[in-house]
Nucleic acid binder design. Sequence first.
DNA 1: ACTCACTTCGGAGTCTAGTCCGTATGTTAG
DNA 2: CTAACATACGGACTAGACTCCGAAGTGAGT
Lengths: 215, 215
Amino acid sequence: MTPAEGPPRTPITIDRRARNKADKQHRIFVAAASLFTGLGYSAVTTQMVADRADVGTGTLFRYASSKAELLMMVLNEQMRLATREGVLASEAGDSPVDAIMALLAPQIHLSLEFPENTAVYQREILFGSERGPYRAEALARISELENAIADILARFALVSRVRSGVDLRGAARTMFSTLHMELIRVSLGREDPRALPGTLRAHVDVLLYGVLAPA
Amino acid sequence: MTPAEGPPRTPITIDRRARNKADKQHRIFVAAASLFTGLGYSAVTTQMVADRADVGTGTLFRYASSKAELLMMVLNEQMRLATREGVLASEAGDSPVDAIMALLAPQIHLSLEFPENTAVYQREILFGSERGPYRAEALARISELENAIADILARFALVSRVRSGVDLRGAARTMFSTLHMELIRVSLGREDPRALPGTLRAHVDVLLYGVLAPA
DNA sequence: ACTCACTTCGGAGTCTAGTCCGTATGTTAG
DNA sequence: CTAACATACGGACTAGACTCCGAAGTGAGT
């Protein structure tokens, strides 16, 4: 109780609110992560997540604005790691195709391990209308990949010159659209993953050197 | 009433079952079409469709296995026309870019007219898990477009030879993935349609001639 | 005409994502 | 310490897609 000495009491309990919040946030994350990875998106109900996190459903939806956002919250973590890993690995590749394969390898791995979850993730990235923070982060992950493609193109452009009139950033987008579509096909099980290296190689080859022979 | 003259009675009512069915089918189609085009996918409830078609909800779902199939049933018609139109128009174009633009123009037009419906249509094509006949038809429409791209490539390959080692069918797929992604972006309003000709042109240019200059 | 096997119908009911609002809990002022 | 306020909570509730099963309709055989 010394008067002029800052907060005399409750220094521990101060910000209890923030801590409760962080705690709930954490419980929800853990609950969602274990349920989604264990059962897959469609088999999980929001009720299950709320129960396991020991919060009410009303509360659940103030931490994530929809079931899809909940999934993104969880997958963003995995994607963050996969992207970082891919970007690092891609720096070593010494042909554009190898670099791009190295970049995407971790993503492909994830898609094969959790097909349903990654398919929903991709679906939400493309078609979701949420404004929530988790979707925003997912979009950032995608941008990161697109930028990595641009970097790879730029790196190899030093060796073998870029054709005049080609905008590298635009070309990266062209290339990424194609590769993204392949990732989706893998998530959906539409494509035998063993065929993937060959398919990607063909895509990248066409994109780098074109369909037509120079006149 | 002459006795020996084929089916004496109920020649009209024969196959009443099939006709009832066709009739309901038709009522459902009309109801769904007017509601979806008038209000947009999300504002329409299956109950509204059932009511307007004057059938029960149980009945509705034996004619289309989900709300999304209902939409596809309706949009397949529009897509069929748009595709036919596009394919015809593309035969006139005298550069690959012009031909492809002509091919896709009707699709783009549809996307701008009914953004929500076409976005859902695209979403279901990519991510839908239904086995119903209407989704199958939608997939057929997409194949048709991909084939048309292959045809265009083949046509122009006569003039300016295809680079050795390039598989035309595969290249068509590469190209279509990119263009499909652009169509989706337009449906979703992510891209100013006025920028589209330029964007498509850039994509097609990269795909035909590649990013890199020949060594 | 009557019956029987079979198909189709339709609305009551189920399931689940997401909302609403009264209650509880933490925070600050006096 | 108490009052007044702000914020967070959570479960009853709603909405809407989809299912289920008893009822009704249909056509064949006699």
